[in-house]
Simulated assay, not measured.
Amino acid sequence: MKIKTSDFVTSAVKREQYPDTDINEIAFVGRSNVGKSSIINSLTNRRGLAKVSQTPGKTRLINFFIINNEFHLVDLPGYGYAKVSKTEKASWGKIIENYLTDRPQLKKVVLLVDSRHKPTEDDILMYDWINHYGYDIEVVATKKDKIKNSEFRKCEKLIRETLKLPSNKKLHFFSSLNKIGKEELSDILFSDLVDETHSN
């Protein structure tokens, strides 16, 4: 799927601040240092669309972007950053949970994990959360360029087993640096959102 336009819409913390539209949404979520902003910028062909912070855990808002004037891409706050207080962590979790709990426009959630490491307890909790709320989920392992080809199968096995991914569920690997397979991943993540929007 070719992304022609991508623009910032609004930032939100509370439900009443979300865009008041009925267009489909796809949300990206992951640990605060997983490279979420980089993959969003790579897939949308906009270098500065999602702000890449040098300070992990800095994104505390839900950011909405309009893609091709057809659907929203939603950037959820990063979680799991160690250098913030428990109170702050809890507030981020509440922001994410409130969005996931009652958002009929949300059709799919992309969970980002680091391809180099075993998914954390927070990653497992988030995967289970998304499934609990019944959303379509795609798991993308970021920073593929950081692992050797000889390590690929081992890393894939570790992620699949830790998250308990079903055997029929594809695990996508991607590098925002070399962008190999970007068009294919874009099709997988976005095409059905557009098809559904057009059919409504």
Score class of each variant (00 low, 15 high):
Leu43Tyr: 11
Glu16Gln: 09
Phe8Met: 11
Pro166Gly: 04
Glu97Val: 06
Ala90Pro: 02
Asp122Val: 13
Leu49Thr: 07
Ile159Thr: 08
Gln105Gly: 07
Ile95Leu: 10
Leu100Lys: 05
Phe8Cys: 10
Asp123Ala: 04
Ile23Thr: 04
Trp92Lys: 03
Asp20Asn: 14
Arg160Cys: 04
Val52Tyr: 01
Pro56Ala: 12
Ser175Glu: 03
Ser186Lys: 13
Glu184Arg: 15
Asp122Pro: 00
Ala141Lys: 05
Ile159Tyr: 04
Ser91Asp: 05
Ile130Tyr: 03
Lys94Arg: 15
Phe71Ser: 08
Lys94His: 05
Ile40Glu: 05
Ser115Gln: 14
Asp136Lys: 15
Asp7Cys: 06
Pro19Gln: 09
Ile159Ser: 10
Leu106Cys: 10
Asn69Trp: 01
Asn131Met: 02
Val113Ile: 13
Ser191Gln: 11
Glu156Pro: 12
Lys157Met: 11
Asp123Met: 03
Ile96Gln: 04
Ala82Val: 13
Leu112Ala: 07
Ile23Cys: 03
Lys94Ser: 03
Leu189Thr: 13
Pro19Asp: 06
Gly181Ser: 13
Gly181Arg: 12
Phe152Ile: 12
Ile130Lys: 06
Lys94Gln: 08
Ser150Cys: 01
Ala141Thr: 08
Leu171Arg: 10
Arg160Pro: 04
Leu193Glu: 08
Ile180Trp: 00
Leu111Glu: 02
Cys155Ser: 14
Thr101Val: 11
Phe190Ile: 02
Asp187Ser: 15
Glu70Tyr: 00
Val74Glu: 07
His172Tyr: 15
Trp92His: 05
Thr21Gly: 00
Thr101Lys: 15
Ile188Ser: 09
Val9Tyr: 10
Thr120Lys: 14
Asn178Val: 06
Glu196Pro: 00
Thr21Ser: 14
Tyr135Leu: 13
Lys58Asp: 01
Ile66Gly: 00
Asp187Trp: 12
Ile40Ser: 00
Asp123Val: 02
Glu161Ser: 15
Arg160Phe: 05
Phe65Cys: 14
Asn168Ala: 09
Ser191Tyr: 12
Arg15Glu: 09
Ile188Pro: 00
Lys179Thr: 04
Pro56Trp: 05
Asn41Tyr: 03
Ile3Pro: 03
Leu73His: 09
Lys36Asn: 08
His117Gly: 09
Leu76Thr: 01
Tyr127Trp: 13
Asp22Met: 05
Ala12Ile: 08
Thr5Pro: 02
Lys170Leu: 08
Lys4Val: 12
Lys83Pro: 07
Lys86Ile: 06
Lys14His: 14
Asn63Ile: 01
Thr162Val: 04
Pro104Asn: 07
Lys86Arg: 13
Gly78Ile: 04
Lys107Cys: 12
Lys51Gln: 04
Lys94Thr: 07
Asp75Phe: 12
Ile40Tyr: 02
Val140Gln: 10
Phe28Met: 08
Glu151Cys: 00
Asp20Pro: 00
Val29Ala: 01
Ser11Phe: 06
Tyr133His: 15
Ser6Pro: 07
Ile66Phe: 07
Ile3Ala: 06
His72Asn: 15
Leu171His: 11
Pro19Lys: 06
Lys86Asn: 11
His198Pro: 00
Lys118Cys: 09
Met126Asn: 07
Ala50Arg: 08
Thr197Tyr: 15
Arg47Ile: 11
Asn98Cys: 03
Trp92Tyr: 13
Ile3Asn: 05
Val29Gly: 01
Val194Ser: 12
Ser38Asp: 12
Ala141Trp: 06
Ser176Phe: 01
Leu158Lys: 14
Ile180His: 08
Glu97Trp: 02
Arg103Ile: 04
Val109Ala: 00
Lys170Cys: 01
Lys144Ser: 10
Lys14Gln: 12
Phe28Trp: 03
Val140Ser: 11
Leu61Gln: 11
Asn63Arg: 09
